[in-house]
């Protein structure tokens, strides 16, 4: 199981495409910094990582800073302690930036 972190907004399409090629359904994704803007989008397309990943999380401080409350029920709000716990539970961490 891989933990993917993504810190760029959805307009970085190349990044989303690359992530979509790599990700598997049981991987974990953490959205941080400008990555949290992905929570505004709904994407059920199974060729897009948002439609593939079953476990997507977003850092609360970064959501709150940007005026986003995760109203996207598919995305779970987490804090830094959760971030650390998820990192230790996964085999490796890949930072997408």
């Amino acid at each position: 199981m891989i933990l993917h972190t993504l810190n760029k907004s959805p307009s970085n399409e190349a990044l989303s495409e690359q992530l979509s090629q790599v990700i598997q359904a049981d991987d974990q994704v953490i959205l941080l910094e400008d990555g949290v803007y992905h929570s505004l989008l709904e994407n059920n397309d199974t060729s897009h990582w948002l439609g593939i990943a079953a476990h997507v999380h977003a850092l609360n401080d970064d959501l709150k800073a940007r005026g986003l409350t995760s109203n996207n029920s598919a995305i779970k709000t987490i804090d830094y302690a959760d971030f650390v716990r998820l990192s230790s539970e996964c085999d490796k961490v890949i930072a997408w930036y």
Binding site: D61, K64, A65, R66, G67, L68, T69
Partner: peptide, 8 residues
């Protein structure tokens, strides 16, 4: 976007 709160 409304309700930005970047203190943290």
């Amino acid at each position: 976007l409304p309700k930005q709160s970047p203190d943290d």
